[in-house]
């Protein structure tokens, strides 16, 4: 089963590296990229609905928060899980990322770590087995 992942980040290198990294690590991921919030919303409006969105917070023009707000307020999009990608370490970003979104991951991250988080979101189940 092919899963579509939309990466929204103003740095195209990040999008490209994720494309390569995620597609390489797991079979069955299709990576889409959007360089800003408008492009992301445009894709959604064109009815390209991804299975998960990786959303950068600090972007010029339209911040990640705004994009998040727009997506979550649209009834046909608000089921899409969102993981925040952030370079910010401050509490607001962490809190909002963790509690508003489905998860957040701090840049720079290990591709494995990101993949795990994505899988967790997809599976939506507790992973604690080890005691």
């Amino acid at each position: 089963m092919t899963r579509t992942i939309l990466v929204v980040d103003d740095n195209p290198d990040v999008i490209n590296s994720l494309k390569i990294g995620l597609e390489d690590a797991t079979q069955g991921y299709r990576i889409l990229g959007a360089e800003n919030g408008q492009k992301c919303l445009k894709l959604l409006q064109d009815n390209i609905i991804p299975d998960i969105i990786l959303l950068d917070i600090m972007m010029p023009q339209m911040s990640g928060w705004e994009v998040f707000d727009k997506i979550k307020n649209n009834p046909s999009w608000n089921k899409i899980p969102i993981i925040f990608l952030t370079a910010r370490t401050d509490r607001t970003a962490k809190n909002a990322g963790g509690f508003l979104g489905d998860d957040y991951i701090e840049k720079p991250f290990e591709i494995v770590d990101l993949k795990n988080r994505i899988e967790i979101v997809f599976n939506k189940k507790s992973i604690i087995k080890t005691r």
Binding site: S17, G21, K107, F109
Partner: peptide
């Protein structure tokens, strides 16, 4: 520093 580290971090292992 964090943002440019991201692609490095992702791409180098690949």
């Amino acid at each position: 520093l964090k943002t440019p580290l991201t692609p490095l971090n992702v791409l180098l292992p690949i």
